[in-house]
């Protein structure tokens, strides 16, 4: 079979793929927002003095990290209704992917928090800061810069995992490419374009994350 790339077909399908790219970015962004916040909650919950909570959260994180994302997506979308939780593909997808990545981000935060020197905790006690102020004003701000690189990796990761949402019919990039392929019996152009679009977004993101990290460190005087 010869390599035959059709430029007119390429130009024809590009707008449709770019429109789907917007959906992909929204999915990745919303999922990441859930993961960033929930991940912090999970990381802090593992540090409470109440042992049962720590244990439950620890097991939850391990469970999420040890099972496939696609299974979790199916679970939320198809098994949820059996418990009366009926969600649209979009909502299910956001929840599943957000939950999944929150487990990974909680580990990033945990490492960042553990890296803050013990003396910082002691200084907080010495000036009698509350536990809340200790975390939110002293410990977390210092845990953040070393966590940014890891957070950036998972930002790219969540973006690259959005095609999995196509399995429950979320109209993201992969879903659009599959549809175009099926309609026209041509897969070379749509899949190649999908790959290029992912590359065009992932590569600069990694660089931007590094710049952001440097900026945060300078801003904090560290």
């Amino acid at each position: 079979m010869s390599f035959d790339w059709k430029w007119d077909f390429t130009w024809e399908i590009l707008p449709r793929l770019l429109a789907a790219t917007v959906n992909t970015l929204i999915a990745a962004g919303a999922g990441y927002a859930i993961a960033v916040v929930l991940g912090l909650v999970l990381a802090l919950a593992q540090r409470t003095p109440w042992k049962p909570l720590t244990l439950i959260v620890r097991e939850f994180v391990e469970f999420i990290r040890s099972t496939p994302l696609v299974l979790q997506i199916f679970f939320v979308f198809y098994v949820g209704p059996q418990f009366g939780i009926r969600l649209s593909p979009w909502t299910s997808g956001m929840i599943a992917i957000g939950l999944h990545y929150s487990a990974y981000l909680s580990e990033v935060y945990r490492a960042g928090i553990d890296a803050v020197p013990r003396g910082q905790w002691e200084a907080c006690r010495a000036i009698n800061l509350s536990t809340r102020d200790t975390y939110f004003r002293v410990i977390i701000p210092q845990a953040l810069p070393p966590s940014i690189a890891g957070m950036g990796n998972y930002l790219v990761g969540i973006f690259k995992d959005t095609p999995m949402l196509s399995v429950i019919g979320v109209a993201e990039l992969m879903h659009a490419a599959n549809a175009i392929g099926a309609e026209n019996y041509r897969f070379l152009e749509p899949y190649t374009l999908v790959g290029l679009i992912f590359l065009a977004i992932s590569l600069p993101t990694a660089g931007l994350v590094r710049l952001f990290e440097g900026w945060v460190r300078r801003k904090m005087g560290m």
């Binding site: 003396g119 910082q120 200084a123 701000p141």
Partner: peptide, 9 residues
Amino acid sequence: FQHFNLFPH
């Protein structure tokens, strides 16, 4: 403290 423990940020 011996190592000051100022808040670096």
